[in-house]
Amino acid sequence: MLQTAQRTAKSKTKKTAPPHDRFLEAFRWMLLTRTLEEKLVSLYRGGLITGGVYIGKGQEAVSVACGLFLQQGDIFAPLIRDQAGRSAFGEPLIDVTRTYLGSRLGPMRGRDGNIHRGHPRKNELAMISHLGAMISVTVGTLMAKRFKGEKNFVGLACIGEGGMQTGSLHEGMNIAAVEQVPLVVVATNNHYAYSTPNDREFACHDLVDRAIGYGFEGYSLDGTDLGTCLDVIGGAVKRARAGRPPQLVVASVLRLSGHGEHDDASYVTEEIKRQPFARDCLKVAEQTIIDLNLVDAETLAEWRKKAAAQVDEAIADAQKEPAPEGDKEDWCALSTRDLVDSFE
């Protein structure tokens, strides 16, 4: 049952063809994400974002593949470094900027911030900070779909190697296999849980080995190679949709940022920065485009310009919007208003 996929982008492709038929589409989501997140970092450093900024630099290739193959009716449970996947899944940019800038009109209305956002009614689950918790929630959404007689759906939940060490993750993976729901878990090993390196996180040879223990099918891949990410994660989504057991994909990358922008990541060693998995997936993908002459330099520049314009517009729009106000807030944690306790 246990398999690995580690082919390189060039192994099956013709010299002039993209390594995957959705390669360029995925690249543009990655580019948009990098542009957006660099802008968010600037705003944070300029004191315009309260709280924190958490970016997915170095993980965009894995993330975009997570969002790209999901269809209408599928469930997506992204985590903190999944902007590329969220965008590919359909999250509007304005949701991001509204949440980071605290607009009252955003999906979280200033009640939650930064990456803690979602649209449960549109099947994008809103993560909580407690890692591993969203795996079983995703399982539940899939069970509901099965109860309701829906067909041809999958769920995809993201996790990191840090989150893979939680009890919640373990329970969630196990119950997914027991319930035989069409779930894909994509675990991105970015080699640091905040500042803690892999050797203090787990002691097994390879995290993908756990797949067989849970009754999942497992795949590992080079997360810096967009073509491979699209092949392997796209394949896992396809297999889950076709009724195969739940799928685990473990991607290897290096987090090319701090845990958040408050963190200078000074603990990341020079040695690890020289590892193959430390490549910048966006640069690797762009080099593939150039090497294979998939689009010309002008087009690439045009895409960059367009991404910058989209980001600027989303930020400008959100900045014009009203902030929540304490004395006008609806301080009600229940939807059943007549059951709200009164402390007045």
Partner: peptide, 8 residues
Amino acid sequence: GTAIGAAI
């Protein structure tokens, strides 16, 4: 967690 997902 599963119950929450199903309820959503």
